[in-house]
Design a protein around this nucleic acid. Structure first.
Length: 413
RNA sequence: GCGGCCGUAGCUCAGUUGGUUAGAGCGCCAGAUUGUGAUUCUGGAUGUCGCCGGUUCAAAUCCGGUCGGCCGCCCCA
């Protein structure tokens, strides 16, 4: 093509695509509202430090995937790579939110990560996001997962997804397990893959999920997280599982499920599919009880998830077609002028009316067909004189005269 | 960031061992007595063969680079 290409990893959402995009967001918003979540939005860029501190300096997202730049005031800013940090920052910035606990919010918008694009992976992508702040109880975990399941169900993709959950424990359990795991892998470091040797220092938990055959052999005897959860963490995880079962939500416990962002504690979960190539995760999240305190706010529990809109779009059914319009086809200057008022009156009644800017009868009828119009209103000099329009049903081809005054009634669906 | 595949009309794709004005289907546009669409018929335009450079008498075709897409890894949504 020409040089007028979009930036790598970005895409235009043309009208047909946008309808499917909006369908995902609208569906999610509707379901979230049923659970009492309120929509909000935060800025697309924040101070770089927010993400560095919130997500973790050593994570891939922060260390090599952020769009970071200096603005004209020499501030280091970053295009948000995810939503949670921004929402938590907003919670800390806006004291009144601390009086609305538990705060249940829904959000949607673009995210930015400098990654190698593939199907289902773009540099600018979009997420729907759900968060509950100020609820340390497992009931919040259950509810948040339940909202996600309902959204996927309404998008008709739940049956192609599997819910995987795991517990990363509370900080005490996590620190303890991490030590045990690091010791174990350090003893086998010479047999680990290069990737996993790098993971050992950054996030040893991730080695558990390695696809390398040699690593898998070592993993077979690796200490299990479930054996190193303290009693409180164990009870918490049990409650979440029991709640999901009670709610009728199917899940699998996956001990290898580890999320890449540092702030997660306790519950981690992902809805995964095999229908998107290498990009299996459609929606994922977890609990992050320490994040808000880490950002300098009052110690406040948090749990939430994000879902990739583009990935959901690829799986979801086509949204319902738009209501079919009526085309008004005036012939001659006088009729054209009169049609403007008639069309406006019909739209006031909630009827979608399209009026061409130009064209003879044939052209207007062709346009009507192309617009998938259900009916055409033909108004020429004769009709103008009689105060009627020819109402042609474009499916049956039948046509009848209808007085201007009763057009709205004749066109009500 | 690593490894691999690919790039020809708006779309899906043909295009022989390099050879003359680069093709098809769909779609688009225009006509078939100017007040009636979708069907049918006729005609038309599709294009810097992603881009830049090299080899050659000659490049869509071979070579290099670059941009972009896709697949796997990594990572994640």
């Amino acid at each position: 093509m020409s040089k007028m290409q979009p930036v790598r990893g970005t895409h235009d959402l043309l009208p047909d695509d946008y309808r499917r995009f909006a369908h995902v967001v609208d569906t999610a918003r509707d379901v979230a509202r049923l659970y009492g979540y309120r929509e909000m939005a935060t800025p697309i860029f924040e101070f770089t430090e927010l993400f560095a501190r919130g997500i973790g300096e050593t994570t891939d997202v922060v260390s090599k995937e952020m769009y970071t730049f200096k603005d004209r005031g020499d501030e280091s800013l970053t295009l948000r790579p995810e939503y949670t940090a921004g929402i938590c920052r907003a919670f800390v910035s806006n004291g009144e939110l601390a009086q609305q606990l538990p705060l249940k919010v829904f959000a949607a918008g673009p995210m930015f990560r400098y990654e190698r694009p593939q199907k289902g992976r773009q540099r600018q992508f979009h997420q729907i996001d759900l968060e509950v702040l100020g609820a340390p109880e497992p009931g919040a975990d259950i509810e948040v997962i339940s909202v996600a399941a309902d959204i996927l169900d309404r998008l008709t993709i739940l049956d192609r997804c599997v819910l995987k959950i795991n517990s990363l424990g509370d900080p005490e359990s996590r620190v303890g397990y991490r030590k045990v795991l690091t010791d174990y892998y350090s003893a086998h470091v010479d047999k680990l893959s290069e990737d996993s040797r790098n993971r050992l220092a950054r996030n040893p938990l991730r080695i558990l999920d390695s696809k390398d055959e040699g690593d898998k052999a070592i993993n077979a005897n690796a200490p299990s997280f479930s054996d190193h959860l303290n009693q409180a963490s164990r009870d918490f995880f049990k409650s979440v599982q029991d709640g999901l079962t009670a709610a009728g939500i199917a899940f699998e416990v996956d001990p290898a499920l580890v999320r890449g962002l540092d702030y997660y504690t306790h519950t981690a979960f992902e809805f995964v599919t095999t229908h998107l190539g290498a990009q299996g995760t459609v929606l994922g999240g977890g609990r992050y009880d320490g994040l808000i305190a880490e950002l300098g706010g009052p110690p406040t529990a948090g749990i939430g998830w994000a879902g990739g809109i583009e990935r959901l779009m690829m799986l979801a059914d086509e949204p319902r077609p738009l209501p079919r319009p009526v085309v008004i086809a005036p012939l001659g200057a006088a009729a054209e002028a009169r049609a403007l008022g008639i069309a406006r009156g019909l739209r006031k009644q909630g009827i979608a009316v399209e009026q061409d800017y130009r064209g003879n009868m044939k052209r207007r009828m062709q346009r009507a067909n192309k617009l998938n119009a259900r009916a055409a209103l033909i108004i020429g000099d004769d009709e103008l004189a009689k105060g009627v329009a020819q109402l042609k049903d474009l499916d049956s081809g039948t046509q009848r005269e209808v007085p201007f005054e009763t057009l709205a009634e004749a066109l009500k669906v």
